[in-house]
Design a protein around this nucleic acid. Structure first.
Lengths: 187, 187
DNA sequence: TCGTATATAGACAGATCGGTCTGTCTTGTC
DNA sequence: GACAAGACAGACCGATCTGTCTATATACGA
């Protein structure tokens, strides 16, 4: 039961951090929502920051898994998968409780690049970029790195325009620009 | 002297909010840095949130002014100005104390779209996009809206990759992708 | 010179925060 | 049935937060 209690805490914290932010979510709110005692939390985590790190780590695994799986389910050829990125992104944007990227938000609240929380966010973005590089290489792009980076910028930009400016169809618009980059790189 | 006291408070708050974040910056820290009494602040602003709004409003004006001026100083023709966006962006990224976009960060901390602070951030992004539309139209792009949105996504994505992932040359890389979009739209 | 407005310093209230500690209860195992 | 591990509830601590209040000092205009 020990591991599942810890898991339950991480899941609950993840949901609240995502919805309300990190500093705005108090320990007590997490405990009340999870139905846990305070000492249960502090037996599993040294501090709130460690709980945040655990939540980000879980989110990274969940997101990358679901993201890659959805892209590969959506399209078969490497070339189609490059534009499928933005179809999957659009589906995410249409969630009614969309509240931005947890890693961008974490970097905003923990601005120091040396903060382990900021570093975890950086690592997440690096892993996504690495996946795009794999896709671009598999599609035999002229310059896989440049294409991957271009698509990455469009994706992050779309997340920002969806969250900050409320552009509900940001990913659909991004797809049009992505197609230009893809066509140019695979001509 | 009243207006200048208020101005000084806004400037000081702006600097601290930018460096340390909004919730992490306490009223007392702002007052100490500005050398002001607490009642001076609360005579000019109803609450901390109003001070944040005033700081964001000032930042919006300062940033858009400097940004547009720098682009127009850097390049003469409309077409050149479209790619000059990313030269100016790169110069911003190279500031040693770069700490991301205050409006993206504000949206992260104040996630509710109905929050006036979040709304101010949305408005800022809309104004920047509007400026890009002007540039794209002046350059006689085939579809000015699509080009402007593509460049906007690349810019916001570059800001994210610079701040979150620490990519110091994010704008330079974005410029390469931007050139593809520009060339395609002005062919 | 005398008010008036605005500045100052700083105590204070009320709430909330992260984190520690005590003591009780449940659960699984031998 | 006895024991140990771990979860429970919740008091408690010191620090910090926003915002209010009082009392004093200073500058300016009639």
């Amino acid at each position: 039961m020990g591991a599942s209690r810890r898991d339950h805490l991480v899941e609950t914290a993840l949901k609240l951090f995502c919805r309300d932010g990190y500093q705005a979510t108090g320990i007590d709110k997490i405990l009340a929502e999870a139905g846990c005692a305070k000492m249960t939390l502090y037996n599993h985590f040294k501090s709130k920051d460690e709980l945040i790190l655990a939540a980000l780590h879980r989110r990274d695994e969940q997101f990358r898994n679901a993201f890659m799986r959805a892209i590969e389910r959506q399209a078969g050829t490497p070339r189609e998968r490059l534009s499928a990125i933005f179809d999957v992104l659009q589906a995410w944007f249409e969630a009614p409780d969309f509240s931005g990227c947890m890693f961008i938000n974490a970097s905003a609240e923990f601005g120091d690049p040396d903060d382990p929380i900021h570093a975890a966010a950086a690592e997440h973005k690096r892993l996504i970029l690495g996946y795009f590089r794999q896709l671009a290489a598999a599609a035999a792009a002229a310059d896989p790195d440049q294409l991957a980076e271009g698509l990455m910028l469009l994706m992050e930009g779309a997340i920002v325009m969806r969250h900050v400016a409320g552009q509900a169809d940001a990913a659909r618009r991004a797809r049009a620009s992505a197609q230009v980059l893809i066509d140019q790189a695979l001509s």
